[in-house]
Amino acid sequence: MTAGLHLGFPLPDRDEPLTAPFWDAAQRHEFAMQWCGSCSRFVWYPRESCSGCGGALPEWRVLSGRGALFTWTEVARALIPEYGGTVPYTTAIVTLAEDDRIRFVTRLVARDDDPRPPILRGGMAVEVTFRPLSFPPATDAVTAPFVQPVELG
């Protein structure tokens, strides 16, 4: 849609240093965020330095992937052409079990063992599930941490 965007957009730019560790971890099926040892807390979004103490953030730690559904929207219309092969889809914000102040943007999908569209409510328990992400008709793909309901049905 705009000149200057990286190849594969809207897939992530795997060469972007600030966010590459997150996506590299996801390829290993790990859900990881920056950890500040001084503040003993996770830092999200990724930053050059900790928003709490200003210290460097060299360490990425794996999280449980458990959280609660903060809000969501089912997007019916492709608002940029690249989403045309994906609509309708549900994008969601999830707060994390390790720190409910952290809001993680993701996509919400049905469980493989219960493919009916999940009935959603605010605060419901969700967990990360690693799924292939692509934007058809483009065929490039990455593994991405989506979320699914913890409970069946």
């Binding site: 897939l11 992530p12 997007v75 943007v105 605010g122």
Partner: peptide, 30 residues
């Protein structure tokens, strides 16, 4: 914004109608 480009757009969280739909849903929840 690098964070939006690499951590929001891949999940379909873009542009404004999506942002404000998420806010509207949260207003309904709260």
């Amino acid at each position: 914004f690098v964070e939006k480009l690499n951590l929001e757009l891949p999940f379909g969280f873009f542009p404004q109608p999506v942002y404000f739909a998420a806010i509207a849903r949260r207003h309904m929840i709260e």
